[in-house]
Amino acid sequence: MDLSQINPLLLLASLMVAATPILLAAIGEAVVEKAGVLNLGVEGMMITGAVVGFAIGVNTGSPAVGFVAAAVAGAALSMLFGVLVLYLMSNQVATGLGLTLFGLGLSSLIGKPYEGMKAPSMAKWDIPLLSDIPVLGPILFRHDPMVYVSLIIVTATWYVLTRTRAGLILRGVGENHDAAHALGYKVVRVRLMAIAFGGACAGLGGAYVSLVRVPQWVEGMTAGAGWIALAIVVFASWRPWRVLLGAYLFGGITVLQLNLQAAGAAIPVEILAMSPYVVTILVLVVISLRGQHGAPGSLGRIFHATH
């Protein structure tokens, strides 16, 4: 094994790219869960976003249009979940699982003709001046626009959730939906919007995998990223900045194991490939040792207004 092949600067730079899909999906899900809804369909929405983003991106030649389409597709799919859970009062766990199974089928149906094609390339932004800073420049300021968009979304989510009235209402709905309803807030409407936001973010995250990270369409390519995003929300105790931290930590592990594979480490490839999932389990255990702080009070409970 030749560890000197691993360039720490490149490693840190690719960490941000590896973390972005999970970061996007996780920040969306954090908002959904803050509103008291557990959507286990993140994986399904991500993979649908991945295929729609790729297909539209290839057909229009513009990754940006692809990303927009992916967000719309993710949100549309999440509305299916929203209607079932909020209006037909179905079990959230079962419906979320169903959404994932449905999304996996839908994506491979749409994606068949696009297998083996190459995504339109996305220009990197070399942010002037900042990208010339030694060490920090290449790590932080030479990425594609979506990396920065994801950071803006995290910042905006943090601001809205903790500093605005809308965020307060959303959190109230998530903590105690009966009280929020009694105060006259539209529980169902707030949750529907949160679910749509979560779906759009998951769609963006999926499209990032197929348009930037790989960049190709391969069936089942999100490979559990949606589930890892769910784990990161728990890890983050439902706080936006910790979601960022969790996603970047996770991105770091992914990139490190890929680099070790490439460097021909003595560890078998399969052990390296399973490491992100094992680490996720370990992190979940450590988090649960500490107790589930910050879980919204009404998370996963069915809301039915009697009058």
């Binding site: 299916l80 079932l84 037909l88 009062m89 179905s90 079990n91 079962a94 419906t95 699982l97 169903g98 199974l101 449905f102 999304g103 996996l104 089928g105 839908l106 491979s108 149906l109 068949k112």
Partner: peptide, 21 residues
């Protein structure tokens, strides 16, 4: 396409959950 069947099965799950109401 084989994936159409997978989608078919997913749809079944949705209709089932929806009708549970």
């Amino acid at each position: 396409p084989g994936a159409a069947i997978q989608m078919f099965q997913g749809m079944l799950m949705f209709f089932l959950l929806a009708m549970d109401v």
